[in-house]
Design a protein around this nucleic acid. Structure first.
Length: 284
DNA sequence: CGTCCAGGTCTAC
DNA sequence: GGTAGACCTGGACGC
């Protein structure tokens, strides 16, 4: 099912406060009134989703707000038809045109930045541990005890000891705290990076100004958080996986040559190539 | 118990 | 502008 492709689009999508299981997403976030609620998305039909939210009854006008959030997180509004046209002409990527390619996004770019920094230079298990600790220790809990992802404001106010001794983020603790302070102070506006009028180069320049964000993190964020698909995510997982699947050398040049025909979608094409098997065990 | 390394980045040449 | 070295952490190894 298409929802599975979104929920399993990349590893960061299943980090807390998200829970992905059996084709269903549960997450926790603050509503327009600041109240924390749990949001559940289930597949319903070919390409839409059924959204429910736990907690006190919602005013009708708020219900739409939650639907919009779900739609944005799942990138349901993205038009990938130019990518599908290119993919249809590729012998190994024609399958994506059935509706793959939507990269699940966090509610805020800030959340995606924090999680991406937590993927750098460590095992995936360490990433899960750090993000879980961040959510539990700095996220606000709702009526049922579930924690939302921490806001930049709360992370900015937390002493460094929380990041080092509590979250055990190592040297990343300073990066996380500084990023939060830059966002909370207004020094950088990450949500503004969603503006399609901003040139890619400008978006990249601003992301690189964040401590702990380098070339890999920029590529990952452009792909997962901002829906800009030209950059190849090159890291210690993608390169060996590419080599294993293609038989080609685990080198950037080989990847660039292979996906050059995809133009501004080459990063997404590469990612699809790498993750094709992620949903093959699922039915439908 | 020491070394290496995992979905890199930063600093100093 | 390109490239070593250091960097927190914890799990996986070799000895």
């Amino acid at each position: 099912m298409i929802l599975d492709r979104v929920l399993l689009s990349h590893g960061v999508a299943s980090l807390p406060p998200n829970i992905v299981s059996s084709g269903m997403l549960t997450t926790v976030l603050a509503g327009p009134d600041g109240g924390i609620r749990r949001l559940t998305v289930r597949g319903s039909g070919a390409d839409c989703a059924l959204v429910t939210y736990d907690g006190p009854r919602l005013p009708a006008r708020e219900a739409q707000w939650w639907m919009d959030q779900a739609s944005r997180i799942l990138r349901l509004e993205d038009d990938l038809s130019p990518f599908y046209e290119l993919a249809a002409a590729d012998p190994e990527l024609g399958w994506v045109a059935a509706g793959a390619g939507r990269m699940m996004a966090a509610p805020t770019v800030f959340e995606e930045v924090v999680k991406t920094i937590c993927t750098t230079n460590c095992s995936w298990g360490a990433t899960e541990r750090m993000v879980k600790a961040l959510v539990e220790q700095l996220g606000v809990a709702g009526w049922d005890g579930f924690h939302a992802f921490p806001t930049a404001e709360r992370m900015a106010q937390a002493p460094l000891a929380v990041f080092s001794e509590g979250v055990r983020a190592g040297y990343r603790g300073r990066y996380l705290q500084e990023c939060a302070q830059m966002v909370a102070s207004g020094q950088i506006n990450l949500e503004e990076l969603r503006d399609p009028e901003l040139p890619d180069e400008e978006v990249e320049r601003r992301l690189l100004s964040l401590p702990g964000v380098g070339p890999y993190a920029v590529s990952h964020l452009m792909l997962t958080a901002l829906g800009r698909y030209h950059r190849l995510v090159l890291d210690s997982w993608t390169l060996p996986t590419w080599a294993k699947l293609s038989g080609a050398a685990p080198e950037a040049r080989a990847v660039e040559a292979r996906f050059e025909p995809f133009g501004r979608y080459r990063g997404l094409a590469f990612w699809m190539y790498l993750t094709k098997s992620w949903t093959e065990s699922q039915a439908g």
